[in-house]
């Protein structure tokens, strides 16, 4: 399953709930405002790093860049994808769920 999170964890609980309900082995993709969670050293980055062994994490590069965070180091192990990579993830995983 591909879990898609689109809201900043500073504002909403989508990432937190996703981390609680996603089955280990799933992929988690951060898009739109959720991309801010990928920045190393941020508070949500700790939650992501703690689950790096359970999930494969991805972040949508265009959303990182749009928010001026392209120059920031990202959480170790998170992979940056573009929209094509987003499409590939939905193909590789057998279902997807959006945490709106």
């Amino acid at each position: 399953m591909l879990h898609i999170v689109n809201k900043s964890p500073f504002e909403r609980n989508g990432l937190k709930s996703c981390l609680r309900l996603a089955k280990p082995g799933s992929a988690i993709l951060l898009i739109e405002d959720a991309a801010v969670a990928a920045v190393a050293g941020s508070a949500p980055a700790k939650d992501i790093a703690a689950r790096m062994g359970d999930f494969s994490f991805y972040v949508l590069g265009p959303d990182i860049d749009a928010r001026g965070l392209g120059d920031k180091e990202l959480v170790d192990g998170i992979k940056v994808v573009d929209y094509g990579g987003f499409v590939d993830l939905t193909v590789e995983q057998d279902t997807c769920q959006s945490w709106l």
Binding site: M1, R20, L21, A22, K23, S26, T95, C96, Q97, S98, W99, L100
Partner: peptide, 18 residues
Amino acid sequence: NSAELQEIMAAQDVVLSS
């Protein structure tokens, strides 16, 4: 509980949220 719900969610074909 969340562990039980996790299993059911993972078994779905289509998940709709709004």
